[in-house]
Design a protein around this nucleic acid. Structure first.
Lengths: 332, 332
DNA sequence: GAAAAAAACGATTGCGCAAACGTTTCGATG
DNA sequence: CATCGAAACGTTTGCGCAATCGTTTTTTTC
């Protein structure tokens, strides 16, 4: 591996001249510039970012600590973050926390050892230790999706609006018995959506039975089981609200297993849009979260904070949009 | 930020003792070990991986240069790579080449500057410059999905088997006029699948009309347009083979726009499975690619090569599996 | 009990680079 | 034609660490 001093030797100049030519950090005469550039080419010199980072104590890297990176919701966010970072000259380390608080803390410490300039985190269901560590270490960090601590910059969906819009839609179609399949317990999104559901229903003058609320669905399999339970009730709901994409897939499985027609026998709607939702039956009525903007804004906020650690915290709630299709019909 | 020498001072030992305690690289008496560990805790020392990397000239990082990172096929592969790397103590930089050869080369050079230990690349449609650079720089690299150059280790799906199985299935159901929606031109997968399709059809004694083969579909929109063209033929195909997930979404859109029933009016099948394929209509007959294993094996191969640059190259073709559902019926 | 070997640890160097600091040259100024 | 200042470049240091080399002390051996 070649070094800057080999270039200097080949060009017959000093290392600082080479450095200044490469970084354009001070005036160098055109002849020497030419010499340096030719030597770089001739030798095949590739600057060593590691050494540069050590000297500058800044790496130009950010850590992405996200759960379930293959979930399309998160992969869209990751894609947007990558794009924005790339545009700003940063590069991202990708880590999957697998929603394990222990792993989450370890990953953050690992990223810290690697001296990332900042971290974008989708907090686990029990993120206290990780978040405390981040605060203590004064590492720039923004939280995405699960907005669980306003000691940080945060970007996510306006879950209250999302649920309220969905409930509005349901009530307009005369649904009163609505079952909800919530996500993983502890997640800020789960908590917010549960609370928003109760509030929105109450606002509509509808009493919410506890057994219509299904919490703790960590997987599509959980969601399937929960949906079976709801549909097996003496008085089953007329509609099912799936509070995320995994819950929806799981719910649809249970509905299929019971050979129910959507929306004739049961109405279905949920949160998280699918690219194919328009082309397959039942065509799902869904709230689309603005994944691209979430990712972009998260990266922007992080870059801002890296630039100024003392700026005021921001929490950004982006509006989701309802895509009315056909899976939610009139209540019987 | 604390350093190893501050720890040494606090513990009343030398920096080398601290280093050896932290890395367990030589015997240190229990008392000094205790002193060091206590000082680390007291000071809140976090080792600096950047400095360590400079000294060791090895960073413990790998670069992931992949296109369309939000495509579920790739995000599954990325997820598997991340998992395997993490298990082996490596961490991955995530980069989206966006299938742009210029960007591809720049990203690889950038990763090289960062002194990644190796690279996993899904080559673009015109990867020559990038691949030549990789060879010249002697950077460990494995190619995934698009197996375009056996100067490298490679891992992907056995596309010949995939297409042959699909064609077998079609012929069993008496389809003879089959339209195929191919992916992006230039991709090794596209080329292989096109060739395999012609070969498999010929093997069955079926002549393939050129206008049933639709190349150059870079997006779902392209695939929709291509499908419209196929369906608008005087003598349209009785079945459509979508050669990847984007092509399938696009094809289904066109089919819906024409209000055709699947499989009554037109049969459909393709490559790339979807998690929801069992629960929505039409239930798609698909070849599932082994994304998890592709990712895992790619990471394994890369780690092997990092360990021994002179080992023989390997090309691994993994078998896909056909999931027969209902979208492909008997030909009219 | 002297020599040798082993045990335990410390001082120092160099990884590749950016930039602070220093030096030389040359034209402008009084 | 001395003096100054600016232009152009070189010398050197230190970022934090691993590990080589070296030192001191203790233990073993005959």
């Amino acid at each position: 591996m070649t070094t800057i001093s080999e270039v200097a030797k080949a060009a017959g100049v000093s290392v600082s001249t080479v450095s200044h030519v490469l970084n354009k950090t001070r005036y160098v005469s055109p002849e020497k510039v030419k010499l340096v550039i030719e030597s770089v080419e001739a030798i095949g010199y590739i600057p060593n970012t590691v050494a540069r980072s050590l000297k500058l104590s800044s790496t130009g890297t950010v850590g992405l600590a996200i759960s379930a990176i293959s979930n399309p919701y998160f992969s869209d966010i990751i894609c947007a973050i990558e794009a924005e970072c790339s545009k700003r000259g940063l590069i991202a380390f990708l880590c999957d926390t697998q929603d394990d608080p222990v792993r989450e803390l370890e990953l953050i410490q690992h990223l810290h050892q690697r001296r990332v300039d900042g971290i974008i985190l989708a907090p686990s269901g029990d993120p206290k230790k990780a978040l405390d560590y981040l605060i203590r270490s004064d590492l720039p960090c923004v939280l995405v999706d699960r907005l669980s601590d306003n000691r940080f910059d945060q970007v996510g969906t306006d879950n209250v609006a999302a649920i309220r819009t969905l409930v509005d839609h349901l009530v307009t179609l005369h649904h009163r018995r609505v079952g909800i399949i919530l996500g993983q317990p502890g997640f800020a999104t789960t908590v917010e959506r549960a609370k928003a559901f109760r509030a929105a229903m109450t606002e509509k003058g509808i009493e919410v039975e506890d057994n219509l609320i299904s919490d703790g669905n960590r997987s599509t399999a959980d969601a399937t089981a929960s949906t079976h339970r709801l549909l097996g009730l003496k008085e089953p709901p007329t509609a099912i609200l799936a509070s995320n994409n995994l819950a929806m897939i799981g719910a649809m499985r249970a509905i299929r297993e019971r050979k129910l027609r959507v929306p004739a026998d049961i109405s279905v709607l949920g949160i998280d849009d699918f690219e194919w939702a328009d082309y397959f039956e039942p065509r799902l009525t869904l709230m689309a979260q603005p994944c691209d903007e979430i990712g972009r804004r998260a990266a922007d906020l992080l870059i801002e904070r890296i630039g100024n650690k003392r700026r005021p915290r921001e929490t950004i709630r982006l509006s989701p949009v309802l895509r009315v299709r056909e899976s939610c019909g009139e209540a019987a």
